[in-house]
Design a protein around this nucleic acid. Structure first.
Lengths: 342, 342
DNA sequence: CCTCCTTGTGGAATCGATTACATCGACTGC
DNA sequence: GCAGTCGATGTAATCGATTCCACAAGGAGG
């Protein structure tokens, strides 16, 4: 592959001049510029990004480490991150941690070795020493969706508080009193937080969240199935199940079907994270929707701000409840609510 | 960040020795090795992959350009590609073309500039000059899922012929005679091929595929909706619709629902590409499943073979029909179904 | 006509690694 | 005791860019 030297030879100038033309430095004569451009054309020359990065100490690349690509929420996040990054002149390398701390570390290390300009992370676990070092060591970093408390890194996330309160009100309004939750891993902020907010929202209605109704999942479908089976085995199973992410909701749906039970007739189901498919499931699933695209874009902007020397800001956007049919027929979904009859 | 020079200074040896230790070259004394390793530890040194790549002319990175990340089929493909690549010591950079030739070219160019060791592509369109140049120019390349005819590049794909024949037999067996297809873009091999195979399979049953029953989609949900609306507007709408990918099937489902029609009672629906969500839609959708994971792994192996100087082989795996309920109840298909009543 | 800028250009250092080649002891074998 | 080998190490070239610095030519100003 042609190098800058070949171009210089072809154009009859020095490599310095070629470089100037390529980076449109002002002091190059029109003549030289034309000759260089012609040579570039003839040779089909493309600058070697590796060499350039070594010299300039910039890769114009962002790393994105997410917990699970197969989760549509993260897929959408990745997509919006790439879009915004591209608009700002950066590429993105995605690392899929699959909810495994060791894989997460593998990707972080790999990205650091490649000297990416900045790192976007949705941490799988509490705090790997590696990530802490990176953060303290000055690698530009931004957390997205999940974060690690106590680390001085901007966080871009959605706040589900009011949406979860709305959900509990919705369930309560439909007459459900025994509400259960399939929690995410305690090591993640979103795993813990959603349970706590849910518990508080229940309390506001005078309801408790017994331990038996708090199942420990890991954000993967299989754990949703397992936990739900546990719920259904109880002497007094819950009337409604709230899954802390979409995949666990899917697992729950499986488990419920496998028992020959029907949603919402026999048991209500709701999920955190809305995805296109929830419209098409049987029944359509009530979910809490995050502004995923906005989240991804904001995260990239924050990270690029940090990289380019501006001060990045943490961002919190609101999630919102999207009511469908999986919690029961709400005759009055549309304004009229079930006020009159029961 | 510490460089190899710092390590050399700290260990009291030359950079050559440090490099030798790091690449475990045989002739290094135990003493020197120990001192270097200690220095590496102390400084938290990590080799700069950029510098290494410049020197060795290898990045140990594969590029993967796919047509649409948001399509679960490609997400799964990407995941298996990354897994296999990691197992073989390579990283993967994903470029999402979003079914847009210009974006595809952007990513190919970007990956080439970064001097990736090899390229895995599922082309969005016929043939961009850029990609042809790359292929001819000696960049190791493998096509996956889709390919460009007439280019000498190995292809790893699934063959849907027998599965499509099975599907048509299934539909025919259920009494459907007016069968329609939502095709993919004619610029893609999978777009063209699936229509042709479908047409031939119909012919085998003495059925025709009129133009009115061949809708032109673009592998995105919205086009599935549009085409299906066209079908439903016909004086004599089809009894069954086969969507050439999963997203268009989703759009079709939307369009059907929007008319207040029911699947499979009013119209049957089937899709190419099976995805986990199809089990949970209302009704569960009959689909043709590709061995996606196997495809991704085989593609990586072929590409790495090419990169490392072995001879890569094209691979064709079989797709298979997965019958669910969206084409009608098939009493025999699944013993348990509604055999007695009706 | 002589300075002093300005503009355009090339030479060479540099980024952080790898690796060919030279060197230097120590050891082997005759 | 000496040539030849081998193992361990260092010096320096190299990969392909960017960029500092020096320098030449030409124009402006005194």
């Amino acid at each position: 592959m042609a190098s800058i030297k070949d171009v210089a030879a072809e154009a009859g100038v020095s490599v310095a001049t070629v470089s100037r033309v390529l980076n449109d430095h002002p002091s190059v004569s029109a003549d030289a510029r034309a000759r260089v451009l012609a040579a570039v054309e003839v040779l089909g020359y493309r600058p070697n990004a590796v060499a350039r990065s070594l010299r300039t100490d910039q890769t114009h690349t962002l790393g994105l480490v997410i917990s699970d690509v197969m989760n549509p929420y993260f897929t959408e996040l990745a997509r919006s991150v790439e879009e915004e990054a591209r608009a700002l002149g950066y590429s993105v390398i995605i690392g899929n941690a699959d909810e495994r701390p060791d894989l997460q570390d593998h990707h972080v290390r790999n990205l650091l070795d490649r000297r990416i300009d900045g790192l976007l992370v949705s941490p799988t676990d509490g705090a790997s020493p590696l990530m802490l070092d990176a953060a303290r060591g000055g690698t530009p970093m931004v957390f997205v969706d999940r974060w690690i408390p106590g680390v001085d890194v901007p966080v871009v996330r959605a706040d589900g508080q009011s949406a979860i309160r709305d959900l509990v009100a919705h369930l309560h309004g439909l007459g459900h009193r025994r509400l259960a939750i399939i929690a995410g891993p305690a090591a993640t902020t979103t795993g813990r937080e959603r349970v706590e907010v849910f518990r508080k929202a229940l309390a506001a209605h005078g309801l408790e969240l017994p331990d038996a109704y708090t199942g420990q999942g890991d954000f993967q479908a299989e754990s949703g199935r397992r936990v739900t089976e546990g719920f259904l085995d109880l002497a007094e199973p819950p009337e409604a199940v709230f899954a802390a992410d979409n995949l666990m909701a899917l697992g729950a749906l499986d488990a419920i079907r496998a028992r020959g039970l029907r949603v919402p007739h026999d048991i209500a189901l709701a999920a955190f994270d809305d995805i296109p498919w929830f419209v098409h499931t049987d029944p359509p699933i009530t979910a809490i929707a995050q502004p995923t695209g906005e989240l991804g874009r904001a995260a990239v902007r924050a990270l690029v701000d940090r990289i380019e020397g501006r001060t990045p800001r943490s961002v919190t956007l609101a999630a919102r409840l999207v009511v469908r049919r999986s919690c029961g027929e709400d005759p009055a979904e549309n304004p009229v609510t079930n006020r009159s009859t029961s």
